[in-house]
Amino acid sequence: MTVTPMQILEAWLAVGFTLMIYSFLYKDNPLFKLGEYMYVGLTAGWGVCSAWFNVVWPDLIEPLSRVFKSYLGATLDKPLSHNENLLLLIPLILGILMLTRFSPKLGWLSRYTFAFILGTASGIAIPLTVSANLFKQMEPTLKPLFGKDISAWMTVNTLLILIGVVSVLIYFFFSLEHKGIIKKVARIGIFYMMVSFGAAFGYTVMARESLAIGRMTKLVKWAGQDYYYASIILLVVIAGLIALLEMLSKKSKPADDSTG
């Protein structure tokens, strides 16, 4: 397999960026800061492009201009679809109300948009949470304790789940003081939660390490001859730069450890 010059350039870029970010593991330093600012700048630019090309232009400006064109009697290359109508003025107006925040005097108008978003979100949430969270979790909880296909072990587990659900719910009661029997039950609830959180933590380790392994595997690959030892050379360069910058900053201001 031959490596093209473009791939080599891309590998060097990737190694440089990767090591800049990893330098944060040592401590905050100008190279991490450089990487961080580049990353923020690029993603902000990407975000603007995405908002314009994927949302504002195709979903608002283009359909709305077609609507106006058809009202003015111009011929369209294809007929208006059923969601191309004047209702699109509503998000336009609500969006413009948000932009009134640029003016200190009219800024309060953005509250109309806030109210619209919050009201809608609240309304959608109520039935959705009952159906998606409560009902979906309720159905598998209501298991028979005994029956012909149910072993003693399954009965014990069903009971343990029931006890767990009830005691965790008791822990969350806000109007009951945690003392006496309530305290004991709530503590059982905490035990359940701790086991659950510990298990989830332990389980996630593998997923997270697999990403680190993926990154390291790439670095190892880029350390090879095909890529002109990119990882090794850049590691030395970046480590050297950090050491150099640290020495310089110690000389110029000995007592101050903040980099601004």
Binding site: V205, M206, E209, S210, A212, I213, M216
Partner: peptide, 13 residues
């Protein structure tokens, strides 16, 4: 192959 580093890291933790 990828289980090898996984196992070592898990053991380390």
């Amino acid at each position: 192959d990828s289980m090898k580093p996984q196992t070592v890291v898990h053991a380390l933790i």
